[in-house]
Write a protein that binds this DNA or RNA. Sequence first.
DNA 1: AATAACGTCAACCGCTCCGCA
DNA 2: TTGCGGAGCGGTTGACGTTAT
Length: 240
Amino acid sequence: MVRSPCCDKMGLKKGPWTPEEDRILVSYIQQHGHPNWRALPKQAGLLRCGKSCRLRWTNYLRPDIKRGNFTREEEETIVKLHELLGNRWSAIAARLPGRTDNEIKNVWHTHLKKKLKTHHHSPSNLKPQPITLSKALNLDHTLHRQSPSGFGFPLVSPQTSSSEFSSNATVKDERMDASETFAWMDESFRLEEFSDEKSRTDDWLPLSKARSCSFNVDDGMEFWYNLLIKTGGPQELPEF
DNA sequence: AATAACGTCAACCGCTCCGCA
DNA sequence: TTGCGGAGCGGTTGACGTTAT
């Protein structure tokens, strides 16, 4: 694939943004939005590449960015989500309103990793462990007894591949066998209860079918996270 | 006071993903 | 089905600030 020339080869500016550049970018986006990042700097009159503009906007200039130090609750959330998702910073950021993936990544590397290191001396605790979903979330049989109703499974076609876990994956295999993972669930569970705005009912798979198919782990993690939020989970998870 | 060591974080790089023709 | 281009992601860098010696 032919790559587009990088900024310096095009005579574009790199490095820290000036207040004037910030002002121009913000002003332009407020008026026109950002339908095309590549075209934006030229149209706005900035000597920057689109990539740089997008980064500056999403990580610093966006009006909904939350400033200031991370709260204890936010840090705990990051730690828990990192256990679940690994280095998927954008996915973690999506759970922390006003925080950017870059910010979270920095906080993780500068603060949280060290904190965890001091609390867990075993090297095996320093990075995400290969998991089974049930093990990772410490789910047990009491959960479904407490639940008044049931739930289905996120439906993913068998041919769907999961490339999301190609690096820094927290799972050993890209696919997991649902019959093993969900062995503790019984047939009484109904389909709809755990569908939410992100998971339409028709995206959910009846338990009987789920038991005999594999599913995309990435979607599975999303499912498990939603499940934990809704049930309260075996651990103290943050509410969103 | 000087400077070395360390910490922080904004920004860049290179890769993959995804939509479209 | 394939190739292209734009967008987004995670890893890394380097400038700058702070602390320790």
